[in-house]
Amino acid sequence: MNDQRTPLLSVRDLKTYFFQDEGTVKAVDGASFDVARGQTLGIVGESGCGKSVTARSILRIVEAPGRIVGGQILWYDAKGQPTDLTQLDPDGHQMRSLRGREIGLIFQEPMTSFSPVHTVGNQIIEAIRLHMGVSKAEARRRAIEALRQVGIPQPERRIDDYAFQLSGGLRQRAMIAVALSCDPRLLIADEPTTALDVTTQAQILDLLRELQQQRGMAIMLITHNLGVVAEMCDDVVVMYLGRVVEVGSVDAIFHQAKHPYTRALLRSIPAITTPPRVKLHTITGSIPHPYNRPSGCPFHPRCPERLRGLCEVAEPALRAVGNGQSVSCFLYENRA
């Protein structure tokens, strides 16, 4: 892994809007970031900030009335040749051969992520046969192997189980097995541990890290859990209301956060050192209604450091502030 900083995926000014009768929801409104080969990128933000829609935009499985209305999603193949995924037919052969083969996806809810009327094996074998062009028997052998790799005991038997017969932890392992069955280069994990209890969470995160080291794949980890980010990620993207407000290495974000929103997020984490019986810090205000996002910087109504006459009028752009860190905030405009 000598070229660790070469990008695998490069999202440029992505805009995904949902067109509804009541108005247009700008779920993702100009997001830009890179995922480097073999690295883990964390995407954090409150629910509704567009994290999940970003993931679905990359896979081109945004559902109507949602649509990608602008930007680029550049996917670099093994030779480093970029393809703009936004230009592909979502149901076309090229896009489908990426899905499941090059990019795997795991979801928050392992129970509902499996069909209730198909066996786990059926769903793994389906993916293997679709992308690898192997015989049924070979696909089954590989599926069992995939289940074994994610630490499912007795995979020969478990392969014929239904999802509702497995425990929560095993289900999420099976989900990972499905996503990794074709050895993808990027794994998108959308809140992979949210629905699990704390012990199982740790196990699943360990498993993901282990598998990443074995295979050298990149992970795009979507979460609102900053603890998970600190543990897993190399780089972090902070999103607010469909926009990227800050990007940086995990060290930079946790130790030298620039954007007021990132800093507020970090303050709201309880630490061992936090004195007991003290009210936990919260971010003032609440997320604006998606139909009427604020003018100017979307965070300005809640921002303790807003610059009057500027933040509510103009939108700040994402600017590098050195050390691989970028931020979109007027507080740093002149220093850039």
Partner: peptide, 26 residues
């Protein structure tokens, strides 16, 4: 145990929330 440091309870995209994913999230 729910994760303690959740910023906000995540919106579960359940069937009861109308028009699919985008809206369910908001």
């Amino acid at each position: 145990a729910e994760p303690e440091q959740d910023l906000k309870p995540h919106a579960t995209p359940s069937s009861s929330q109308g028009e699919g994913w985008g809206e369910g999230d908001f």
